[in-house]
Nucleic acid binder design. Sequence first.
DNA 1: CCACTGCTTCGATAATCGTCGAAATATATG
DNA 2: CATATATTTCGACGATTATCGAAGCAGTGG
Lengths: 105, 105
Amino acid sequence: MSRKLDTHAKQLGALGHPARLAIVRHVVQAGPGGAAAGEIQAKLKIPASTLSHHIERLATAGLIDSRREGTFIYYSAVFATLRALTDYLWEDCCKGGEGGKSSCC
Amino acid sequence: MSRKLDTHAKQLGALGHPARLAIVRHVVQAGPGGAAAGEIQAKLKIPASTLSHHIERLATAGLIDSRREGTFIYYSAVFATLRALTDYLWEDCCKGGEGGKSSCC
DNA sequence: CCACTGCTTCGATAATCGTCGAAATATATG
DNA sequence: CATATATTTCGACGATTATCGAAGCAGTGG
């Protein structure tokens, strides 16, 4: 049906792994400046190649951006996309509702 | 590390499929009363067995509840869980931020 | 130019997921 | 009880995902 549905499902799927969720939370908490790959690896304690795959999945989904700075690569959250994603879940909440919106949204 | 991380990753993973995302959106929009399985099937146009598996995944993740009413089974969103999930992504946003929170959250 | 550090790509393997028809179960109705 | 409808379970399959070491590439500093 909609392209949005597929895109958002892909993004949610990208978040659907403990390591990747931890990565996203880390860069969200790091703010617009982002966090270095090495810093993330140190926190998650996983092999570099595995981390790289996870990061690629998140980048492909459009959830994180990368920026090279010398030897380091900084990853930062794409806040607008993330916001659109969380909003999407609540879109038209209770639109068929007879119970009133107060109980859920 | 944290149990929350795994739980929420599982929930996000459950949402990471177009059919399941559509199901959740449908029940969210249906409100606390929920939506019948048959109604959902009619909307998604997928075989009953496939739908059943998707629904089971969502239920296992704690995102939807089921309620039997005669021959029909109504599924409804677990709004509190859904809200906790979306909030989780933004927890401590920009806590290390020097750029000010306004730019992201 | 050589070694070093930071990260990605390759390649291979195991595990999980997605799909759907057929058969089973549950509930209502004649 | 017989039958019809609603939904789940079974079983099997191919497709995708997750993992990680080894090897490669990029940028820095001696």
